[in-house]
Amino acid sequence: MAADDRQRRVDDLVERHGGRLQRFLRRRVRNAADIPDVIQEVFLRLLRVPNHETIRAPEAYILTIARHVAQQHALQSAGSAASVELETVLSELRAVPETDPALAVTAEQCVEELDRALLQLSPKVQATFLLYRRDGMSMDEISARLGISRPMAKKYLARALVHFRKRLKDME
């Protein structure tokens, strides 16, 4: 697909789905002034897709991209830098042996629940949890990385753990 065709396709998608995208992002981006930047990034990523014809559900595809961009924006806003990627953690959890379909379905449901639970946390609490659990950082390293005090880093981690415990009890 030529660049002009891709641009026309994206323009059409902006016209048809731009309002829904803005409403979607208003619930996910804390600072309303950042929404235009996030939207621009979503459509820039969409322009990079080589074959737009293969996208079966454009609105769902756009909202998925928007969710990823909003998550990255939230983590960067929390001062955690681009190295803390929520999607990296989730993709590792999705790596389930394909030999047992029931196990794969259960694992996918757990990953989706974890994703929803993480999205409910503030960006700094998310970043603290990921830096501690995924990257194995100490409280001192986390506090230096996020620009917060050590006791605040401990408080953020405790909030995350309490939140996950509550969500696990709700699932049972």
Results as ranks from 00 to 15, higher is better:
L93V: 01
A158W: 08
S77K: 01
S149R: 08
A127H: 01
Q109L: 05
Y156R: 03
P36W: 05
T128I: 06
M1F: 08
P97V: 04
D37E: 10
L25D: 04
L161M: 14
V111Y: 02
Q7C: 08
R165K: 02
D100M: 08
Y132G: 12
F164M: 01
V84E: 03
A81N: 04
L121W: 00
A3R: 13
E141H: 13
E87R: 01
E15Q: 15
A33E: 13
D5Q: 15
V10Q: 12
M1C: 14
G18R: 01
L46V: 12
L86P: 12
L25W: 07
C110Y: 11
R45G: 11
A2D: 15
A81Q: 09
R16K: 15
K154D: 05
F129K: 04
V49R: 06
L146E: 03
E141D: 10
V29D: 01
E85T: 09
Q72A: 14
H52N: 03
V29Y: 09
R6V: 13
F43C: 03
D5A: 15
E98A: 10
V10W: 00
L44I: 14
L63V: 07
L118A: 04
T54S: 14
F164P: 01
L44P: 07
L75V: 10
Q71Y: 08
R6A: 09
R23A: 03
R56P: 06
D135R: 11
V111N: 03
I39H: 00
L130I: 13
K166E: 05
A3Y: 14
R27I: 00
Q7L: 09
R145D: 02
Q72N: 15
E98M: 08
E87Q: 04
R133H: 06
V29E: 09
E87I: 12
Q109F: 10
I35S: 00
L103P: 02
T88W: 11
E53Q: 13
P58K: 03
R9T: 15
L93T: 12
R30Y: 05
T128D: 02
L121V: 00
L13G: 04
R150H: 06
H73A: 09
L13P: 00
A153S: 06
E92A: 15
P97A: 02
Q40G: 01
E172Q: 06
I62R: 04
L103M: 12
D5S: 15
V42T: 05
S91C: 09
A57K: 14
F164E: 00
A70M: 01
L86C: 11
